[in-house]
């Protein structure tokens, strides 16, 4: 379990190294679809460690997992606003907030995901499915440049990235509802 803590911290440290950070943020698609998710992974890994070390803590702050998942949804949605990505490049305070809030989201997700059970998981999953599809549509279809720091070209690439993820998510749903699940239960 200590390993996951080390992995998490390591990823975090790598992400924070200025040249790597600046390189990742120079491309919109890497910024949103690689850097941000990795930060969530960081939180997830650390969460796994803390969950084992201090099991009582989560019981206290995230009883049935619902409050945790609400914060997770809020934080991830916040970072999907076209504005925030832009501001992270312009204002250091946004950048710092990004590196704090997203690991926190992953941290909460780890605990909540276990607690909200199959029903909650499917609901959250389907919500993200339609949200990603919509984001793809927004970035592809928007005739105006949504972000000031990124070119229209980058915006389109990101749009396709979102569409690609949505397609994968749909495939995953299809395979999981149409293949036999009875043994796993």
């Amino acid at each position: 379990m200590k390993r996951s803590f080390i992995i998490g911290s390591l990823i975090f440290l790598i992400l924070i190294i200025p040249p790597i950070r600046i390189y990742m943020e120079s491309m919109m698609i890497i910024h949103m679809l690689v850097q941000l998710p990795l930060l969530i992974v960081v939180g997830w890994c650390i969460g796994e460690y803390i969950e084992n070390k201090y099991p009582k803590l989560f019981e206290l702050i995230n009883g049935n997992g619902v409050s945790g998942i609400i914060i997770f949804v809020a934080i991830t949605m916040f970072w999907m606003l076209p504005r925030t990505l832009d501001e992270a490049l312009t204002f250091p305070i946004y950048e710092i907030f990004k590196f704090i809030s997203l690991p926190l989201a992953g941290f909460l997700l780890k605990d909540s995901w276990r607690k909200i059970k199959a029903f909650g998981r499917i609901f959250i999953y389907l919500n993200y499915l339609s949200m990603f599809g919509l984001m793809g549509w927004l970035y592809l279809d928007s005739p105006i440049q949504i972000c000031n720091n990124y070119l229209l070209e980058q915006q389109k690439t990101l749009g396709w990235g979102f569409i690609f993820i949505t397609a994968l998510m749909v495939l995953y749903v299809l395979q999981s509802v149409f293949t036999d699940q009875s043994e796993e239960e």
Partner: peptide, 21 residues
């Protein structure tokens, strides 16, 4: 409505194995 159908889908899969079944 989505909540309701998630529940029916979950229950059907649990009992019959998959939506195909």
């Amino acid at each position: 409505f989505l909540l309701l159908y998630i529940d029916t889908g979950r229950a059907i899969i649990k009992n019959y194995g998959s939506l195909g079944k």
